[in-house]
Design a protein around this nucleic acid. Structure first.
Lengths: 247, 247
DNA sequence: CGTAGGTTTGACTGATCTCAAGTTTGGTGG
DNA sequence: CCACCAAACTTGAGATCAGTCAAACCTACG
């Protein structure tokens, strides 16, 4: 079902304006894009590795992640996403998916035909630049994850994941270090940090005992944001948020 | 020193044509770009984290890597690069470097002012698409590295690194699985895989004892390419080479 | 030939994993 | 409203992969 969906257009405009102002013409171009809005349930796959896609998904609400599998069934989450994120910009120009995209919670997404989005980018330098920046920031986050998984110990890794999550969530209006919901099971945290669920559990407890975090189920509070960032080695410059602030 | 450098232009054209044919006008645009060619010695930094840059570097010859550091001095290499690679496309649109770029061997690079390259991309959809694809493939490689470092054991990690290296080197005409030079110290391999140099050494020996590889100093031969790929869990689709083949 | 950087080896330590058994939680149907 | 169930979370004990530390050995190069 292809419909003109105001909510999706607004979300995309808001996303792209994080990276610099759009002109009225640009906004009109975006509003004219066809969107197919869908709701998916928790756990549902939006993209399967190896499949071909001719559209891009914008996450309107809910949470999602990208992940890859090893030959022997190990799973690695390589990024997570929240509302406003464009989860598969790679399909704008790459035919085959090299990873999976899966909804973590129930979610609603807007799918945009890749050729239409490409055309929009070609017609408008502002739109093209914004999409570019989104991809470049995505890549920057992957680099930070390589560092996180490769060079930090279990506690720091988990702390870093939490710091990144809350920073991005807060920017999207979804809570603050004081109070936020982390919609991940401990198994998913393990898959994102390259650890086992058992060890994630122990490290979360350790962070709790040290007075860094408090949690009830998946509702978290960071009690000492400064020390938490220190333990995590978290420096948000890799998120390139200054672009957003400047705008 | 800004000069019109035929070698650099040719390298860039060749790189971009991997992703699809360029028209004569596109090639002329690229030839008209100003290049500043520099040679650097092994170990020299091309980009420092946190610094601002207004140009992009094309690696003409030699090897380089990108890396990041943790607060406590741990180093993680997040990618390596060989001739033909554009090592800092992120600076096309992101002001501050979020990682370091360092020459691994003596190298020669061509620097292109970012604004000129941006202008070229704006003027030519073919150039824009090619640069896009390069960035998207870069990101795909980072995802694979997150998986490699997060979910594979030491032996497989190193095997995977070797498989990726030889695949990309062979594509650039720098040897074959039969015979190639891996210009990395064991410490650099350790920094790329999230291990210690000591353990890298032992795992390389283990791969040798199992008849997977033979090496003399840093000259390698893969003795059983099929089993090597198996151990590594290496599937080259994340490199999106079909684009190159199709062209 | 002397030196520095890189590689190799050995013995010991320790972080993280594995396996396996509970316990809690939230949702569902009676 | 309660009983039950599956999924998620916790806990403990023992095993193992990879790290640490320290010394010795190459090898290219000045």
């Amino acid at each position: 079902m292809i419909v003109h969906d105001e909510v999706a257009a607004r979300a995309l405009i808001q996303k792209l304006e994080q990276f610099g102002p759009l002109g009225e013409a640009d906004r009109a171009t975006i509003r004219a894009l066809p969107y197919a809005t869908r709701t998916v349930r928790a756990g549902q796959h939006l993209v399967r590795e190896g499949s071909t896609h001719d559209h891009c998904c914008l996450l309107i609400d809910g949470y999602a992640c990208r992940h890859k599998m090893t030959a022997d069934g190990g799973r690695q989450i390589v990024s997570f996403h929240l509302r406003g994120d464009i989860v598969d910009l790679p399909h704008l120009l790459l035919a085959r998916a090299d990873h999976n995209v899966q909804a973590i919670t129930a979610a609603t997404i807007a799918c945009i035909p890749a050729d239409r989005l490409r055309a929009a980018a070609r017609g408008s330098p502002a739109i093209a630049d914004a999409l570019w920046r989104d991809v470049l920031i995505d890549a920057s986050i992957f680099r930070e994850w390589v560092l996180n998984v490769g060079r930090r110990d279990a506690r720091s890794r988990i702390a870093h994941l939490i710091c990144e999550f809350v920073t991005r969530a807060a920017a999207a209006g979804l809570g603050s270090p004081d109070r936020f919901h982390l919609p991940l099971t401990q198994e998913q945290i393990a898959d994102a940090t390259g650890l086992t669920p058992v060890h994630v559990n122990r490290m979360l407890q350790s962070l709790g005992q040290d007075g860094m975090i408090a949690r009830k189920r998946r509702d978290f509070r960071i009690l000492d944001w400064r020390r938490m960032r220190e333990i995590a080695g978290f420096d948000d410059s890799y998120l390139h948020r200054s672009l957003a602030e400047a705008a």
